[in-house]
Every structure is written in C-alpha cells, then in structure tokens.
C-alpha cells in the first residue's frame, strides 16, 4: 500500500485491480485543510487516461508487477510465443503487443511486464534493424529536407522514410515511436 504522500510522477499504482502509471501530479492544499493530490493516471493495459484525486489519508494500492526477460520464439495463429530461461512458453496476444509486434524477430530478447502473473506489455530494445522490402524510388531533383515517402519493411510494417532510402537498404527504427531513425545499409 502507498499512502497519498508517496504519490509522484511515474509511480505505478493499482485502481480497482488495474495497474496505472501516474503521468501528471499536482499537490494542492486549501488553507489549514487536508492535502489533495490530483493525478492523471494512465491505464497500463489499454493506455486510456483519467484524473483521480486523493486526500492525504487515502491509501493507494500497489500493483504486483514483475518484469522478466523473455526470448521471442515464434508466432502461433494470433498469439506470439515467448520462452523464459526454463524454456517455458508464454503466449502474448496481438492486443497486448499492438504495433510492437512488428518489431519482434526470432531470438530477440525483450522485457515482459507481468501484472498478477498476466503479461501486460513488453519493452523492446530501443532500436531494431529492418530491411526495406518495398518503396518507390525517390524522385530525382527533389532535394528538400524532411521529404518522406512510404515504405514497407520485412514483417509488413509500414512507415515513412527519407527519399534516399531504397529497396534492399537496412534501416534502424525507433521502437518507442515506430519511426525511422537512420539508414544502416
């Protein structure tokens, strides 16, 4: 259990059985009154946000969160199968992974976050490298900066890349934003 005075930005709390992370935090105190903590909290499972207020004597639940290093193994129908160090298989659904599923590759090691034993999300390496499978050639003579064109990388993920990137090039993708970072070649 946390007490209200432990609340701060980035703290993970549990509300009605769901884990949340505090994204904004404000402390208010009417003259001689009790402290009121106003927090914007983000649902760690579906990403939705809401505002919650706590008074100084309120107690806040602590979520049971465990992070484990797992290795991605293979895709099985709609599930993505990971393996822990004892070769035990853990299935994550497409819903939990979202766009991150595009950045999985066999043998890649990721941090998987579990809440009460249920996997709720993964943390990927910040950059992954992918080969461009399809993109139109960049139009000659168009040298303005920041001009981007669509491209598809292996695994089917689509993103915007600069004009000079060609089919067959290797690029680095920032997994936090899903955006192009640089060309590796």
């Amino acid at each position: 259990m946390f007490s209200a005075s432990d609340l701060r930005k980035g703290l993970k709390i549990e509300v009605d059985g769901t884990p949340y992370v505090i994204t904004e935090y404000n402390f208010m105190k009417p003259g001689k009154g009790q402290a009121i903590y106003t927090c914007r909290i983000k649902n760690m499972i579906d990403g939705s946000t809401q505002v919650k207020q706590y008074r100084s004597n309120d107690k806040v639940d602590k979520p049971e969160l465990i992070e484990k290093k797992l290795v991605y193994s293979y895709k099985d129908a709609d599930d993505y199968v990971f393996m822990d160090e004892n070769f035990e298989q853990i299935h994550l659904s497409e819903n939990v992974l979202g766009d991150q599923r595009y950045f999985l590759k066999e043998e890649i090691e990721v941090d998987v976050l579990f809440h009460n034993g249920q996997p709720i999300g993964i943390e990927l390496p910040i950059f992954v490298e992918r080969r461009i499978e399809f993109t139109e050639p960049g139009a000659k003579g168009n040298t303005a900066t920041n001009v981007m064109k669509p491209a598809t990388v292996e695994g089917g993920y689509e993103l915007q890349v600069p004009l000079f990137v060609n089919e067959g090039d290797m690029i680095r993708i920032d997994t936090r934003t899903g955006e192009y970072a640089e060309r590796v070649r």
């Binding site: 208010m28 009417p30 009154g33 009790q34 009121i36 106003t38 207020q53 008074r55």
Partner: peptide, 14 residues
C-alpha cells in the same frame, strides 16, 4: 462536512 469542504474548496471555490 470536512472532506466535502476541502474537496469543494480545491475543485470549485479556489
């Protein structure tokens, strides 16, 4: 009502 007094002070009156 002390709780309501403080919450309304922070959320409505101030």
């Amino acid at each position: 009502d002390p709780d309501r007094f403080d919450l309304d002070m922070v959320n409505i009156i101030e």
